[in-house]
Amino acid sequence: EDAPSSDDLEQFAKQFKQRRIKLGFTQADVGLALGTLYGNVFSQTTICRFEALQLSFKNMCKLKPLLNKWLEETDSSS
């Protein structure tokens, strides 16, 4: 699987934040939901840093598919 470019990540982080707010979730909600869904709880700080593009590139790449999946799950259930 190709690693996303930093442009991709930036684009995704923006879209993710907009969708999250529109769906009415806090950063902490998302962190907990990831724990429920995938067994990895993320702190509010981590989600905040992801949205602000302040995580390392490697961590951004790791989180992106999880957050993407969460969006898909959340979209389909709302």
Rank of each mutant, 00 (worst) to 15 (best):
F57C: 05
Y38M: 04
E1T: 13
V30S: 03
E10C: 09
Y38R: 05
N68L: 13
Y38Q: 08
G31A: 14
F57M: 11
Y38S: 11
T36V: 06
Q11N: 12
I21W: 03
P4Q: 07
A3W: 14
L37A: 11
T45Q: 14
S6E: 15
L23E: 04
A52V: 00
K58G: 10
K62M: 10
Q44G: 12
F25A: 07
T74K: 13
D8N: 07
S6V: 15
W70D: 04
E72W: 04
F16Y: 00
Q11E: 12
N40S: 12
D7C: 06
E72C: 07
E72G: 05
S77F: 07
F42E: 10
L53R: 11
G39R: 08
L37Y: 15
A52P: 00
P65I: 13
L37N: 06
L71E: 03
D7A: 09
W70P: 00
S56L: 00
K14Q: 13
E72N: 09
S6A: 15
Q15H: 10
E10D: 09
D2V: 15
G24D: 02
Q27G: 03
S6M: 15
S5W: 08
W70M: 01
Q18T: 11
S6H: 15
D2G: 15
R19M: 12
T26V: 02
N40M: 09
E51T: 02
A52C: 05
F25T: 00
D7R: 10
G35R: 12
L63G: 02
L55A: 03
K14C: 07
S77M: 11
F12T: 00
E10W: 10
K17D: 00
K64I: 01
G31I: 05
F57H: 12
E51Q: 02
R19D: 06
V41P: 13
K64V: 09
T74N: 15
D8F: 04
K62H: 12
K69C: 05
L71G: 01
L34M: 09
T45L: 10
F50G: 02
F50E: 06
Q27L: 06
A13S: 03
Q18H: 12
F42G: 03
L71H: 05
S78W: 08
K17G: 04
L53S: 13
F57R: 12
T26N: 04
T36I: 08
S5G: 15
F57L: 12
P65S: 08
L71Q: 04
F50T: 01
N68I: 11
D29F: 01
Q18L: 07
A52K: 14
L32E: 12
L9Q: 06
V41K: 14
L67I: 06
S56H: 02
S77R: 11
G24Q: 01
L63D: 06
L71S: 02
S56M: 01
S43Q: 06
E1I: 15
C61P: 00
K62W: 04
A3C: 15
N40I: 10
I21H: 02
I47P: 02
S78H: 15
T26M: 03
N40E: 12
A13H: 00
W70F: 13
I21L: 08
Q11G: 07
K22N: 14
K17T: 12
F50K: 00
W70G: 02
D75C: 13
G24A: 02
F16D: 01
L23K: 05
N40Y: 07
G39Y: 00
D8C: 06
S78Q: 09
F50C: 00
T45R: 12
E73S: 09
L66E: 00
R19A: 11
T36R: 13
T26C: 06
L63W: 03
T46E: 12
T26P: 00
